[in-house]
Simulated assay, not measured.
Amino acid sequence: MASKQAQRLAARQQLEQRMSVKADEERRKRTVLWSIGGVAGLVALIVIAVLAVKLFAPEDEEGPASDPDIAGLIADAEAASTRCDGVEPSGEGELGEAVEGLTDGRPAQDVYLECFQMSAPDASATRDCLYNSVDGVSPTPLFTQPAAGTQEMTIVTNLGTITADIDTGRAPCTAGSFTTLAQDDYFDGQQCHRLTTDGIWVLQCGDPDARAAIEGGTPEMAGMGSPGYQYNEENLPVQAEANYPAGTIAMANAGAGTTGSQFFIVYEDTTLPASYTVLGQITSGLDIVEQVAAAGAM
Results as ranks from 00 to 15, higher is better:
Leu181Trp: 15
Gly189Thr: 06
Pro208Ala: 07
Thr161Ser: 08
Ala175Glu: 12
Thr144Ala: 09
Ile214Ala: 08
Glu152Val: 13
Ala210Asn: 09
Gly169Ala: 09
Ile162Pro: 00
Ala147Ile: 13
Gly169Tyr: 05
Ser177Arg: 03
Gly199Asn: 13
Arg194Leu: 15
Met221Val: 14
Gln145Ser: 03
Asp135Arg: 02
Glu152Leu: 07
Gln183Ile: 03
Tyr229Pro: 00
Asp209Ile: 08
Asn158Leu: 07
Asn132Glu: 03
Ser226Leu: 10
Leu159Val: 07
Ala213His: 06
Ser177Leu: 07
Ser177Met: 06
Gly206Arg: 08
Trp201His: 14
Met153Lys: 13
Asp207Asn: 02
Thr157Ile: 08
Val134Cys: 07
Arg170Ser: 08
Gly206Asn: 09
Gly149Tyr: 05
Glu152Gly: 08
Asp185Ser: 11
Ala210Arg: 00
Pro208Val: 13
Ala222Tyr: 01
Ser138Gly: 02
Val202Glu: 02
Thr168Arg: 15
Gly228Pro: 04
Ser177Tyr: 01
Asp185Leu: 08
Ile162Tyr: 13
Leu159Glu: 11
Gln190Trp: 15
Gly216Lys: 01
Ile200Phe: 01
Gly169Ile: 04
Thr144Gly: 02
His193Trp: 11
Thr218Cys: 14
Gly206Trp: 03
Gly216Asn: 07
Asp209Gln: 15
Ile214Tyr: 05
Asn158Trp: 11
Gly136Thr: 05
Gly149Ala: 06
Phe187Gln: 04
Ala175Thr: 10
Thr168Tyr: 13
Thr140Ile: 11
Asn132Trp: 01
Arg194Phe: 12
Gly217Thr: 01
Ala148Leu: 05
Gly176Ser: 02
Leu181Lys: 06
Gln204Glu: 11
Leu181Thr: 03
Thr218Gly: 10
Val156Glu: 08
Thr161Pro: 06
Tyr186Met: 13
Leu142Cys: 06
Asp207Phe: 08
Gly206Ala: 14
Gln151Cys: 11
Gly228Glu: 08
Gly223Ile: 11
Asp165Glu: 10
Thr140Asn: 05
Ala182Ile: 15
Asp184His: 05
Thr168Gly: 04
Thr197Tyr: 00
Ile155Asn: 03
Ile200Asn: 04
Ile200Leu: 01
Arg211Trp: 12
Thr218Ile: 09
Val156Pro: 14
Gly217Glu: 04
Asp184Cys: 12
Thr179Ser: 09
Gly169Asn: 04
Thr180Ile: 10
Ala175Gly: 12
Pro227Leu: 04
Ala210Gly: 14
Asp135Gly: 00
Glu220Trp: 12
Tyr186Cys: 14
Asp167Gln: 15
Thr154His: 10
Glu152Ile: 09
Gly189Arg: 03
Thr154Tyr: 07
Met224Phe: 12
Gly216Cys: 02
Gln204Trp: 12
Thr196Pro: 02
Cys192Met: 09
Thr150Pro: 10
Asp188Ala: 06
Thr140Trp: 02
